[in-house]
């Protein structure tokens, strides 16, 4: 870097791909063979990728809402990193849903022009942000569960999904760590932070039931080696949560009963409609426009 020649310093390394998180690309799956392997139902695969993609998209949105409100500037940067990672995963998974479906829908068609009942994310992701303890505990649950799924998906029979999972595993492992460290700091911090974190844990825990309830599509695809049956990851989830909560001096609530599937069937809370109204407002005001 030329120290006294700032313009020169700016000119070097002007490689778009280095700009954070691959924001330069238009098509997240450009150059990748997106044909669906023989024997896999393309509609089921598409629906499954929508589930995982919607989880990432909606969770990312809730993290984006922290922007300019984080408790410290360093945490501002960290939360944006996590939101960017999940947004990147959403783009890949929605694109995969589109290519598997083969009906000409791209990532933005799926993100901006579906209504709430067509979204397949788990309800845990769409709950409105509470305080920082609430967001931290939610992220811990979400990332622990998602990491367990992605880890197993790296051997999916769909090579595109397997590749997306392999890329995402490293990211989500970092998210889980981040949330775990903060849960421990808050749980084992002051009396106030302990109380707030315990309250968040108690409030969020009932939503874990849904995480391990397999949808029919998940079960069918899991049997073929394409997807993961979420009921298989409960043990890993419990082990990780137990370890973190113990260090955080937090009391683990009684196990949540398995939920009758909700988000995976398109049954959502009002806050998701509000979230989508915001997310989709500009895009829907200009139908057919490109950005």
């Amino acid at each position: 870097m030329a120290f006294d020649n700032a313009l020169g310093a700016i000119a070097e390394d002007n490689d778009e791909t280095r700009w954070a998180f691959g924001t330069g690309f238009h098509d997240p799956l450009a150059g990748i063979d997106t044909s669906v392997p023989d024997g896999i139902d393309r509609h089921a695969l598409s629906a499954y990728c929508l589930m995982l993609g919607d989880d990432a998209l909606i969770m990312s949105h809730r993290l984006q809402e922290w922007c300019t409100h984080a408790p410290e500037l360093e945490e501002e940067v960290a939360l944006a990193n996590i939101a960017l990672d999940l947004l990147g995963q959403a783009r890949l998974l929605l694109s995969r849903a589109g290519t598997a479906e083969d009906a000409g829908r791209a990532e933005d068609d799926l993100a901006y022009f579906r209504n709430a009942p067509e979204f397949r994310n788990i309800v845990l992701a769409e709950l409105p942000n509470g305080d920082f303890a609430h967001s931290t505990v939610r992220l811990l649950m979400f990332a622990t569960w998602r990491l367990a799924l992605l880890d197993r998906l790296t051997t999916s029979r769909d090579p595109v999904l397997a590749a997306i999972a392999a890329k995402s595993v490293k990211e989500v492992a970092y998210h889980r760590d981040h949330a775990a460290l903060w849960t421990i700091r808050l749980g084992d911090g002051t009396d106030l932070s302990h109380a707030r974190t315990q309250r968040a844990l108690d409030a969020l825990w009932p939503h874990t039931g849904e995480l391990f309830t397999a949808h029919k599509i998940e079960r069918d695809l899991a049997a073929m080696g394409v997807a993961v049956d979420p009921s298989d990851v409960r043990e890993e989830f419990d082990t990780v949560l137990d370890e973190v909560l113990t260090k955080a001096t937090l009391r683990r609530p009684a196990p949540a009963p398995p939920a009758n599937s909700a988000g995976r069937d398109g049954k959502h809370s009002t806050p998701l409609s509000d979230l989508l109204a915001e997310l989709q407002s500009v895009a829907r005001a200009h139908p057919g426009a490109t950005w």
Binding site: R18, W19, A20, E72, E74, V77, A78, N81, H178, L181, R185
Partner: peptide
């Protein structure tokens, strides 16, 4: 430099802040 409560946080914040572009 940066502010952090503990060494681990400092390392992670440094990674996020000073190596955002790898």
């Amino acid at each position: 430099s940066l502010r952090a409560a503990d060494d681990t946080m400092a390392l992670r914040n440094a990674r996020d802040l000073y190596t955002r572009r790898n």
